[in-house]
Computed example of a mutant assay.
Amino acid sequence: MSSRKRFWQSVSVGERDGLFSPELDGRPIRLPQGTVLAVASQSLAQAIAAEWEAIPKDASFTPEQLSMTRVAGTMIERIRPDLIEAREALLRLGLDDGLCYRKGPADSTVERVFAWLATQGIRPEVTDGLMPVTQSGDYVTGLERLLSRQGEAELAALGVLTQCFGSLLLSLALLYDAISLEEAVFVANADERQQLLVWGQDDELIRIMAIREKDAAETIQFLKLAQNT
């Protein structure tokens, strides 16, 4: 991804019409489609401002260094205009959820995820084979109902976490505190851990696992700040 150099001298947070906007040299940050980056949570705006302030003077940077900014931008320009489509996109991922494909013995964390899902009326079909599973109508209805409760910040976080974990179900369980962040990452890293056991040291696999943990932690932090209004 192409880099840019820091061009601003100061970072602050402005307020207008009940929204908080990180500002560079007194000017609001504009997202790719031209929308001003402004959020309802002052805490989130301050965290976004801190990302920009942390970039050293005259240093090059990429969007990868601005995790809060990226998730907030997705929330504002992609999710806010059409929450229904955002929920439907997540539902499509949940119809072929990675958690429904078992490999090896049952994992206690996964079993707790399924137990929590059952309390939400969601009982997925699972398989230890390679063929896709077809979920029941009740599963679809339950997942639709759960997704309908999610606002723009939750949908933005779920989008990142689902891509990160390869599982909407695991992401939902994390959002609802049915499991911890550490437990979710442990489950998501299962394939990489198995490969390391079989093949030994692999720096690329270790890098992938570390990035997954970092992305998940930053996304959960984004959501906590966004909910602090």
Rank of each mutant, 00 (worst) to 15 (best):
L117A: 03
L37R: 02
R193G: 06
T134A: 13
D202P: 11
D202M: 03
W8Y: 05
I84L: 11
A173R: 03
Q42T: 12
D107I: 01
L66H: 06
G129Q: 11
P81S: 01
F222I: 10
Q194R: 15
E125R: 12
A54M: 01
V160M: 07
E192M: 09
E152N: 07
Q120L: 03
D58R: 08
S10Y: 10
A157D: 04
S60Q: 08
I211A: 14
I29P: 03
P81Q: 01
W52A: 06
L66S: 05
L181P: 11
V185Y: 08
Y101A: 02
T119K: 01
E204K: 14
T127K: 09
T35C: 04
L24C: 07
R27S: 14
D25Y: 08
G166P: 09
Q65E: 14
I76L: 12
L205M: 10
R212T: 04
D138Y: 00
T109F: 08
A49C: 10
I122C: 00
A210D: 11
S108A: 15
S60L: 10
L44C: 10
L196N: 07
V160L: 04
S10A: 15
L19V: 15
M68S: 12
I122F: 00
R70W: 07
G73D: 00
T127E: 03
R87Y: 01
A59F: 07
V36C: 08
A226M: 07
P56F: 06
M75N: 02
L223M: 11
L161M: 11
E183G: 10
K224H: 15
D202I: 10
L83Y: 10
I29E: 00
R6N: 05
D82P: 10
T109M: 08
S2V: 11
L143I: 05
A173I: 06
L223N: 11
E23T: 12
Q120A: 06
E53T: 09
L95M: 14
T62W: 07
T35D: 04
D203C: 11
F114P: 00
S171Q: 04
L31A: 05
V110L: 04
E88R: 14
Q221I: 07
Q42K: 15
A190P: 01
A178R: 02
W52V: 05
G34P: 06
L172C: 03
S136I: 06
G200R: 09
I29M: 04
I208G: 08
G137H: 12
I79L: 00
L95V: 06
L95N: 08
S136Q: 07
A210L: 10
T134G: 12
D107C: 06
W8S: 02
S167N: 05
R207N: 11
A184P: 09
M1E: 06
D215Y: 12
L143A: 00
D177N: 14
P63I: 09
L161W: 08
L205R: 15
T74F: 14
I29Q: 02
A89H: 10
E182N: 13
L83F: 07
I55K: 09
K224F: 12
L44K: 14
C100D: 08
F222R: 05
Q201P: 12
M131S: 15
S171C: 07
V71D: 01
T141F: 02
D107E: 12
L175I: 09
L90S: 02
L196D: 06
P22H: 03
A156K: 09
A49D: 05
D203V: 14
S171V: 07
L91E: 00
A50K: 15
